[in-house]
Design a protein around this nucleic acid. Sequence first.
DNA 1: TGTTTGTTATAGACATGGTCTATATCTCCT
DNA 2: AGGAGATATAGACCATGTCTATAACAAACA
Lengths: 293, 293
Amino acid sequence: MSITNNYELYKVFYWAAKTGSLSQAAKALYITQPSVSHAIKQLEDSFGITLFYRTSRGVSLTQEGSLLYSYVEQSQIFIALAEEKMAALKNLDSGELRIGGSDSLFKHFLLPYLEEYHRKYPGIRLHLNHGTTPEVITFLKEGRIDLGVVRLPIVDPQLEVRESIQLQDCFVAGERYAELRDKTLSLPELMEYPVILFSRNSRARMTITELFQSYGHKLKPEIEVGSVDLLIEFARRGLGISYVTREFVSQELDNGSLFEIKLDVDIPPSHLGTMTMRNMPLTSAATRFLEMV
Amino acid sequence: MSITNNYELYKVFYWAAKTGSLSQAAKALYITQPSVSHAIKQLEDSFGITLFYRTSRGVSLTQEGSLLYSYVEQSQIFIALAEEKMAALKNLDSGELRIGGSDSLFKHFLLPYLEEYHRKYPGIRLHLNHGTTPEVITFLKEGRIDLGVVRLPIVDPQLEVRESIQLQDCFVAGERYAELRDKTLSLPELMEYPVILFSRNSRARMTITELFQSYGHKLKPEIEVGSVDLLIEFARRGLGISYVTREFVSQELDNGSLFEIKLDVDIPPSHLGTMTMRNMPLTSAATRFLEMV
DNA sequence: TGTTTGTTATAGACATGGTCTATATCTCCT
DNA sequence: AGGAGATATAGACCATGTCTATAACAAACA
């Protein structure tokens, strides 16, 4: 343990030494001169060493006082830096924000938010970790990210989930299958065409597979690809019918390079949400981001 | 000024982070766990930032807490070093002692004390500054030495003088003037012989010059030398009669290589003393040395 | 030389706030 | 289910840090 039981004394000492005057130190510390005088005396008594020469023009350090000052000064400098840093963190002038999610969500959903956030808080360093939903959950639990953006539902008592916008998945095709443009297909009819699915174990793929299963069908994709962009590109080139999120292909639907295939069953909408660790405090940076989304 | 008005909080934070437990921090700081809990909350509130994750197994730093810790740790290390240093100074395990005086006093009077002091407190660095009495006084006033050892009297209200041992100056000669061994000389008779004096404006020389003057004589030395050793050596070789301090030639008087010349007037004894600045605190090292002398 | 203006030191009153005890709450582990 | 051990909360108390008032002193100044 320490000799003095009050580190405040070092602050007073620091200012007294720095200003060379107990009165000035008192001003700087917003206390009265007798308080400073008293504090210095306490410090001196605790060491049994005189730290200042007192004159009628102020105080000056003794040999020993100078030695003490050289250490205390460093200490105070670090404290000052620490407080600066904390203030910067609070003001979102610095810090970092680590987000987990899939690449497609980053690109099609989060990008505008990320841009706005970065514009508003250029001091915050953004870290994006892509992964599947279970991977993102693992990242969260390991403390490697501050928040995750995934498709719902997520059922995990350790996680706090905030529902965000709703997405509608659908099947789309390009010019090659123009004959289907105004038709309404049943699931078996659809299955006669080559279906393109996301290759990885994504929540979207699980959803559609389960939908088919609930009607007694087994959906086998003709083609599996590794990114949403490829799903879109393959459909446009007529390689098959892709299962995509409608909101992510709005541009292609508008300009006609893709069209949605109507089905005689409803594909349930999926919800997007953010998740964070329950009972774990968030950084200011993360809190602010969640407010935006 | 600082954000927090109590640097104590950093100490608590430091220990909480270091031990990873509020309870353990409380033990280390000899306070109770609720106090620590309260202190941490204060710190967090002052920043508006959560610093710890609380679990039922203790606490761990948040991202921001870690950042704060990296600064606070440095600060605390410097404080610990400072307290160590102060303790060492107090124990006389380190520090320095700066003494001013004439070379002859160092050699003939102070040497045994210095040796003992150095043996007892090997951590204290000794600085010896030689000079005449007025120079030593200047050194003192400029703060370049802690204490001076000089011949008295010294009259200076700024100085605090402690009388030490008494010295007796006298004239001595060697074999060459053996005829004077049992005689008692008057001042005019002495003046017929070549007199060797210290060249510099020393107090000893002033004293003897004034003594002659008070009897209406003007003492003109045949030879002037720059050190007490030369005064002795010249007298032994028969170059003249040296005015020296009896205590400094006791060895030569004992072995007969020099003898004292008796005079029909008394040379007033001179006192040796230590002087320090009045109203200026002394270092522990200096205080201890003064106690020894 | 007395006066003013600055400094630090001292004394004593007061009230802030840090610390305590007691208790609650929660998690993990047996 | 219960125990052990962690942190959080509430409220009381009193230590101590701060204040006001004043003294003492030195330097600058008129």
